[in-house]
Amino acid sequence: MSMATGSKFMPPQATEIAKSVDSLYEFLLIVSFISCVLVIGGLIYFAIVHRRKHEGEKTPYIAHNTTLEFLWSFIPFVIFMVVFVWGWVVYHQLRHMPENGLEIGVQGQKWDWTFIYKSGRKTAGEIYVPVNQDVKLLMTSADVIHSFYIPAFRTKQDVVPGRYSALWFNANREGTFQVFCTEYCGDKHSAMAAKIHVVSREKYEDWVQTDAYKGLSSVEIGAKVYGQRCIACHSLTPTPEGANPIAPSYYGLFGKQEKLDDGSTVLVDENYVRESILNPNAKIVAGYKKGIMPTFAGQLSEEEVMGLIDYLKTVK
């Protein structure tokens, strides 16, 4: 089975670079296989041929052989240099950022990915890119180190808090491909996945411009945002049983008097909810920890914050 056509044993190839990586890998496999056959074959062959026939056998005294030793140092060295240079060439392609690529912002946070497009649009867990187009991801993390890995593109790059790192690709076929987080980041590390949708140029333009909430009421928008951004921590259950203990449930929240950790109480109104979303550490609910809820300032549009407020009013 040739890997060039995409086999069961490799992810699909969706960039030209993926093909170069696979050719090099294929070469490495062949050379490695031959080396293993020689070494292990020699090992087994000598073991059989020179097995002890009777105790006290004399063995020849062979301490070294300059030619042989030179050869088995030099030949591996040459092979290593060949694969090193080849690997360098491929690496250069992977790391050399295109001049006029389409830039998309990526933020990693425990435990999901946010994608920020120049049009102002944002998506979580799903990224859309046009086919046959250089795309450059400008990435940073809100908390710990994550790593953005697209097996089908044979590329990955760590995403580090406090700085930007970059990764580029040019997908050569349409389709949906897997994204993993490959730097261990805690409990839901293995769930920190995303999908990358490679679509035609027109579809992409259309998509990036269109309003994701077209035709939706404010409450529906809020429900949708809740499902994407808040559900990981906030439940909707009326009683503590079955609720996620990490954060207060939304049930009956709006309009109630909330106890804060400094002992005071506050009325849950529009302003309080808004502040909780955009500046969550300003007031902390009694019994919950500070610093768990991330700020959504700059991440949610006005429309989405309004939607959330309207949606909260309905949860009772």
Partner: peptide, 15 residues
């Protein structure tokens, strides 16, 4: 050696 080949390791790293 495969992992030391830097162009290939980008794919294999942390897998």
């Amino acid at each position: 050696i495969m992992l030391a080949v830097v162009g290939v390791d980008v794919h294999f790293h942390d897998t």
